[in-house]
C-alpha cells in the first residue's frame, strides 16, 4: 500500500548528486548515466543520422522532387532511383529527404508544444487546492470535446491568409500546423501530469520540502515534476508519431502543406492504394516514421532511467 511506504523516494537529482563523494553537477551526472544506456546512445546516433540525412541529403542527391517521368512509374529500387519511384515516376528518395525536413520538424515541434502546454496546465491543476484545478480541468474537458474537423476548417479559414502574409507559404503553414497539432493534443499530457501530482503532492518527500519552507514553485519543479516525468516521456514520444501522421491528415483537409509537398505521412497515404503492387512506396516512409519513433522512444527511456537515481546503471 502506498500509505505504508517506509522510506520516501528522494528523486531530486540534486539530492542524489550530493550523496556522491565527487562533486558533479546534476546535469553532468544525468549525462554520465545517459551515456551508459546503450540503446539510448544508439538511438541518438540514428536520430542524428535521420536529421543529417534530411538536411544534407538533398545536396548529395540533387534530384528534383517533382520530376515527372511516365516511363518510370512505380519502379522498385534501382541505381537510378535508390528507393524506387511513385506512380508519376517521381524519385522517392528525393521526395523523402525533402518531406522529411517537414515531418521531423512538425513531429518534434508539435511534441514540444503539446508537452510544455500539457505539463504546465497539468502541474498547475495538480498543485492547486482551490479554483485553478476546476477551471483548468474545464478547459481540458472543453478541448477534449471540441469537434476537431470543423474547428480546423475554421482556424484555417480565419488565420491562413494572415499567417501566409507574415511567414510565407510554407512558414505560415508550419506555424499553423504546429500550433494546431500541439494545441489540440496537450490534454492527455495535462490529465496524466495532474493525476501524478495529485498522488505525489501528498508524499512524504514533498511534505518534507514543504516543511523546509520550499515555495510552491520549487515544490512543483524541483520535487514533484521529476517524479512525474515517466508518463510524460511516454506521452510525448507517442506524440511525435501521431503528429507526423496527423500532418498528413491535415493536408488532406487542405489545411496542411500544399499538395505537392511530399511529407512522410502524405507519402504513406498516397502509397496505400498501390500497396499490393508497389510496397516499396509505402515501406520507406513507413520505416522512416518507425525509426524516428523508435529512436525518440529509446532516448526517452534513457532520459528517464538517467533521471531516476534509484536505477542502477
Amino acid at each position: 500500500m502506498a500509505g505504508s511506504t517506509l522510506a520516501s523516494p528522494s528523486a531530486d537529482p540534486a539530492a542524489g548528486a550530493a550523496v556522491s563523494q565527487v562533486s558533479v553537477s546534476p546535469g553532468r551526472e544525468t549525462w554520465r548515466r545517459f551515456r551508459r544506456h546503450r540503446l539510448a546512445m544508439a538511438s541518438t546516433f540514428v536520430l542524428g543520422l535521420l536529421v543529417l540525412g534530411v538536411i544534407v541529403g538533398p545536396w548529395l542527391w540533387p534530384v528534383a522532387i517533382n520530376d515527372i517521368d511516365f516511363s518510370a512509374q512505380l519502379q522498385g529500387p534501382s541505381w537510378a532511383h535508390p528507393l524506387g519511384t511513385d506512380d508519376l515516376g517521381q524519385d522517392i528518395l528525393a521526395r523523402m529527404m525533402y518531406g522529411g525536413r517537414i515531418s521531423l520538424a512538425v513531429g518534434l515541434a508539435a511534441m514540444i508544444v503539446a508537452t510544455i502546454v500539457g505539463v504546465l496546465i497539468g502541474a498547475l491543476a495538480g498543485m492547486s487546492r482551490k479554483y485553478a484545478d476546476p477551471i483548468l480541468m474545464w478547459v481540458t474537458d472543453l478541448f477534449l470535446s471540441l469537434p476537431q474537423l470543423p474547428l480546423l476548417l475554421l482556424i484555417i479559414y480565419l488565420f491562413r491568409e494572415q499567417l501566409k502574409a507574415v511567414f510565407g507559404v510554407e512558414g505560415g503553414v508550419f506555424v499553423l500546423i504546429v500550433v494546431v497539432i500541439g494545441g489540440l493534443r496537450w490534454m492527455p499530457v495535462a490529465r496524466l501530469v495532474r493525476a501524478q501530482f495529485l498522488s505525489l503532492r501528498e508524499k512524504e518527500f514533498v511534505e518534507a520540502a514543504r516543511a523546509q519552507g520550499a515555495t510552491k514553485m520549487r515544490q512543483m519543479f524541483r520535487h514533484i515534476l521529476p517524479n512525474a516525468v515517466g508518463p510524460v516521456i511516454v506521452a510525448s514520444t507517442i506524440e511525435v508519431s501521431s503528429a507526423i501522421i496527423a500532418e498528413s491528415t491535415l493536408s488532406f483537409l487542405g489545411l496542411g502543406f500544399p499538395p505537392d509537398i511530399p511529407t512522410w505521412g502524405r507519402l504513406l497515404f498516397d502509397a496505400k492504394d498501390q500497396l499490393d503492387t508497389a510496397p516499396h512506396w509505402a515501406l520507406f516512409p513507413g520505416a522512416a516514421i518507425f525509426l524516428t519513433v523508435l529512436s525518440i522512444n529509446f532516448i526517452g527511456d534513457g532520459l528517464r532511467d538517467a533521471l531516476d537515481p534509484r536505477r542502477v546503471i
Partner: peptide, 8 residues
Amino acid sequence: LKSVTASV
C-alpha cells in the same frame, strides 16, 4: 498549388 476540401 492549393487544394480545398470538397465540402468547403
